[in-house]
């Protein structure tokens, strides 16, 4: 059974990986929440802002990508 062979350290690494991506996703969500509100306001004023607005919305997604990179690196150490 795979579960039995896992050490405490590996478990902690797994939790760390989860936290890395989870917290990063929360950060991205918080940032996007405000950007999306502003972008929707801008679009209702001028529908031409749609393209630019969409671009601004994805800006904070970098955070979650960094989270993923860290998570992958941690998971690599478990193996």
């Amino acid at each position: 059974m795979a579960v039995e062979t896992l050490t405490t350290g590996a478990g902690l690494l797994g939790i760390g990986a989860g936290l890395a991506i989870g917290l990063a996703a929360i950060g991205t969500g918080l940032a996007q929440q405000q950007i999306i509100a502003a972008v929707l306001g801008a679009i209702s004023e001028d529908p031409k802002m749609f393209g630019k607005g969409l671009f601004f919305i994805v800006l904070p997604e970098t955070l979650v990508i960094f989270g993923l990179v860290i998570a992958l690196m941690l998971m690599g150490n478990i193996g």
Binding site: E61, T62, I65, F66, L68, V69
Partner: peptide, 9 residues
């Protein structure tokens, strides 16, 4: 540079 990891993600 790390930001390009999004290509993979």
């Amino acid at each position: 540079i790390v930001s390009y990891a999004r290509l993979m993600a």
